[in-house]
Design a protein around this nucleic acid. Structure first.
Length: 304
RNA sequence: GGUGCCAUAGCUCAGUUGGUAGAGCAACGGACUGAAAAUCCGUGUGUCCUUGGUUCAAUUCCGAGUGGCACCA
């Protein structure tokens, strides 16, 4: 009998965390977090890590597991999750994966192409060139190194252009030659459920949750990371709920403005998540977490 | 109570020498295979406070009303 990976996703603050714990208890199984920020030990309050109480009820993976100093990416996540699933499926028919990082979820479900790891020196050098020579110069590099990708690449987006140049220069082969666009086959079933509350409801929840985070000591948490941010701007700290405090600490924003910005940026983030998930036609949508609990999909899985 | 200023998008405001209007932010929509809570792109959503007058035509000019702000009492 095939095993099932039950994915519960949706925008931030939609109620995934509590719901997935309830469902995991029903199946007597474990939870894999698909959240690119909750895995960092030093960021607990601002990333809305599940409470100790919830973590005690169900075993979670990829929560608070690495340091903000560590490099991590979607490919590493794919690899580690597949290994873990092999083990978990020995004793569990169903495993839950919960989180809002769409790229990470896709990496697990469909795989992503093999690329060499980027040397940080190469990236830094390109960042310096972007500063000194401007973006157009790098676009011309891409045109020369990978004319095919140049045709389809978003040429306004430094992240895309830089990535392609990095891979092309490091390997001596065009970036596009690594992109196979083929879905990898998995030896387990995948069911994708997503929560998408009514927009105003979601935004109110976001705003309230940010206020709660502030009361819980988000400012102090951010403050402990500020010197690291000033030192070398690790990507892990380029995170909603932290980068706004860094601007406050360096005098760019007032405190109340910073808190407003956290709410705003979280709303923007939620919208981007919704856009990403809407493209995935395998997802079954629900307005509220409670609707998922009552759904027959879950009970039919329980029977099997 | 008197005088002055203001009233335009969800907010802050610009503008129309009279021909039904535009910025920023918000909001909305989208892209996205190793930065993904990242990065990038697109869209104006409007009884121009109400009401009389002048005019071919008023959001714009004039009068009155209402609301707000400031100063004087």
């Amino acid at each position: 009998m095939t095993s099932t990976l039950l994915i519960i996703t949706g925008p931030t603050a939609s109620g995934k965390t509590i719901l997935s714990v309830e469902i995991a208890k029903q199946f007597n199984t474990e939870i894999i977090s698909a959240d690119s920020r909750q895995m960092y030990k030093e960021m607990r309050i601002g990333t809305a890590v599940p409470s100790d109480d919830l973590l005690a009820k169900v075993k979670h993976h990829f929560i608070q597991s690495i340091s903000v100093n560590d490099y991590y990416n979607a490919s590493m996540f794919e690899c580690e999750v597949l290994h873990l699933l092999n083990e978990l499926f020995i004793h569990h028919k169903v495993v839950i994966m919960t989180g809002g990082s769409g790229l990470y979820i896709d990496a697990v479900c469909n795989g992503i192409d093999d690329l060499p790891d980027v040397d940080s020196a190469v990236r830094n050098e390109l960042m310096v060139r972007l500063q000194n020579e401007g973006f157009e110069s790098l676009r011309m590099d891409l045109k020369r190194l990978d004319p095919m990708y140049y045709q389809t690449c978003d040429l306004q987006n430094p992240a895309r252009v830089l990535k392609a140049i990095e891979i092309s220069t490091m390997t001596g082969k065009p970036y596009s030659s690594f992109l196979t666009r083929t879905k990898k086959q998995r030896n387990f079933n995948i069911i994708k459920l997503a929560i998408n509350p009514e927009r105003n409801t979601l935004y109110n929840r976001i705003n309230n949750r940010v206020d709660e985070m502030v009361l819980a000591g988000l400012e102090e948490e951010a403050h402990t990371l500020f010197s690291l941010w000033q030192e070398r701007h690790p990507n892990s700290l380029n995170t909603v709920g932290y980068k706004e405090w860094f601007r406050y600490f360096s005098g760019e924003l007032s405190k109340s403005k910073a808190i407003d910005q956290i709410k705003q940026n979280t709303r923007h983030y939620a919208k981007r998540q919704i856009t990403w998930f809407k493209r995935d036609k395998q997802i079954v949508w629900f307005d509220e977490p409670s609707c998922i609990l009552q759904n027959t999909l879950i009970s039919s899985l329980l029977v099997k």
